[in-house]
């Protein structure tokens, strides 16, 4: 007889799947907290950035622009462009979340980051409401506690350790993506197309940083769509 997984077991599985994000976020958030303190932001503002914005790259960018004396309007615009990529992820998740009660959507949307999106998208068989909620909660907690700890005692992390922990999140992207390539030749081709399109856009400097990601995602996904339609092979 097939029994439904116990609640405890389900929580444990969710935590294990979130572990790479927790491990990756904490030290990077610490680095952010420390840098924010050195940019002379208050503890309140530093914490609020992580609590309300919750988007790592744009938080670091904001510190950079604040110390360069850039106007607030421009910082907000730059933040918008950099974080617009989440729009594509949000749209993609709509397919996975289609059976969730709508009242949870505002909360689940807030939790979309590159990392949570990746882990959810590549564990399609495990997606259910409690998994997504636990994943979001733990990632959010790691980012915010890390920020506050970093503001307090960030100096204790050596710089080379911080840099290599930063590689950790990209390492996670690769660790999620590479096994997928095994499943179909199309995925390998589509991934290569995406890299080539992005590299061309990056060096051509036709689009500002932020836009280049979105345009590359759209172009390469459309090319990928053409590819799977031509080959008639399912993903």
């Amino acid at each position: 007889m097939k029994r439904i997984k116990s609640f405890k077991q389900e929580i444990r599985d969710s935590i294990v799947l979130t572990l790479p994000i927790i491990i990756g976020y904490f030290p990077i958030a610490m680095a952010f907290g420390l840098l924010s303190k050195n940019t002379s932001l208050s503890f309140r503002d530093t914490s609020l950035l992580s609590l309300l914005v919750y988007a790592g790259a744009s938080q670091f960018m904001a510190l950079d622009l604040i110390s360069a004396g850039v106007s607030w309007g421009s910082i907000i615009l730059a933040t918008f462009l950099l974080n617009l990529r989440h729009m594509m992820m949000s749209a993609s998740l709509a397919v996975e979340f289609k059976d969730f009660p709508k009242k949870y959507i505002p909360l689940l949307s807030f939790g979309i980051t590159d990392e949570t999106f990746s882990v959810i998208s590549f564990n399609k068989d495990k997606i259910n409401l409690s998994f997504v909620l636990i994943l979001n909660l733990l990632s959010y907690a790691s980012w915010n506690i890390g920020t506050m700890v970093g503001y307090g005692v960030g100096e204790i992390l050596p710089a080379s350790l911080q840099s290599s922990l930063n590689v950790g999140l990209y390492a996670m992207f690769a660790a999620l993506l590479f096994p997928e390539i095994k499943k179909s030749k199309n995925i390998l081709l589509i991934s290569l197309i995406a890299v080539i399109v992005y590299v061309i856009l990056f060096y051509s400097k036709l689009f500002s940083s932020g836009w280049d990601i979105i345009v590359a995602v759209i172009i390469s996904s459309l090319l990928g769509l053409k590819l799977i339609n031509n080959s008639k092979e399912e993903l």
């Binding site: 990529r85 594509m88 992820m89 749209a91 993609s92 709509a94 397919v95 979340f97 289609k98 969730f100 709508k102 959507i105 590159d114 999106f117 990746s118 998208s121 590549f122 990209y170 992207f173 690769a174 999620l176 993506l177 997928e180 995925i187 589509i190 991934s191 290569l192 197309i193 995406a194 890299v195 399109v197 992005y198 590299v199 990056f202 990601i213 590359a216 995602v217 390469s220 996904s221 459309l222 990928g224 769509l225 799977i228 993903l235």
Partner: peptide, 28 residues
Amino acid sequence: LTNRKVNKKVEDFLSLIPYTSLSILIAR
């Protein structure tokens, strides 16, 4: 998009985004 039917083409397009966006984030 939640709780709404999207056509097969759009769904295929959306389902490719994890692969393309991850590849692009790594390259970036």
